[in-house]
Nucleic acid binder design. Structure first.
Lengths: 136, 136
DNA sequence: CAGCATCCGTTATGATACTG
DNA sequence: CAGTATCATAACGGATGCTG
């Protein structure tokens, strides 16, 4: 019950952070680096957001994300699938269609993604202002 | 039964996500991409975590992060400074010392970072298991 | 339709040497 | 100490053509 990571930014965050101060840089050992390596990829988060509204087919994803190449779309989806965040189901139609969806694990990642998204949205202006000030 | 995403983590998350479904991919316009471009950098998040426990000097950061080169450390700190997340103070000692610290904006970013970190920590095992299963 | 293979330019990052 | 400059390389990512 007291798993309140809902809204306590203050004290325990630093504690948590401190635990990673000396974290190894090897992604195989450090969860931060490991997850980041995925989050950091250019398209994966966008794909997660697309899939947050429901299963989508390969071509639908490509259309909606906009300017992603088939190459990168395939690769990103494979990475997400490999990490267990996205499931892939092939329908033996002709021509075949493939549907991608979030797994339970994938859905659980929407919360941290949403928090990040919200922060980004709330502070984008500040960041841009800081850049202007810095560049000037 | 359809594999509808039955269990929503939180109702408003999907709403928020939906708002970014058609988000432009241009970082100058899309906050998600813009923030991600920073989060995605190999070292910035690690540096933020290092600085979460207090101001640190250039050499201290290099030592604690571990295997970051001076080149990347300088560049990453500059980027963070430009975005207004980190402040830089030069002390005119000889030889000079420079201290880096989080700004208010930088501190506010610790919450989303912490949420992400927690998720990473909680689910790292699952991800690794998924990878083993996928590769096998 | 979905996705793999190939080629190729761009960017990210490391190693090293040098400076105020 | 805290960088900067330069070079070299590896990873990233787009374009294209081919296939079941």
């Amino acid at each position: 019950m007291t798993r309140a990571h809902a809204s306590n930014p203050a004290p325990d965050i630093l504690t948590l952070m401190a635990a990673y101060e000396g974290a190894p840089d090897d992604p195989a050992v450090c969860p931060i680096r490991d997850v980041l390596d995925r989050v950091a990829q250019k398209w994966t988060l966008l794909l997660m957001i697309q899939l947050s509204t429901g299963p989508k087919r390969f071509s639908a994803l490509q259309r909606q994300v906009g300017d992603i190449s088939k190459r990168m779309l395939t690769q990103s989806l494979r990475d997400l699938e490999r990490d267990g965040l996205v499931s892939r189901e092939v329908f033996p139609t002709k021509p075949p269609s493939v549907e991608y969806a979030l797994t339970d694990l994938g859905r659980s990642s929407l919360e941290p993604i949403a928090v990040l998204t919200q922060w980004a949205d709330n502070n984008h202006d500040r960041i841009r202002q800081a850049r202007v000030a810095f560049d000037g």
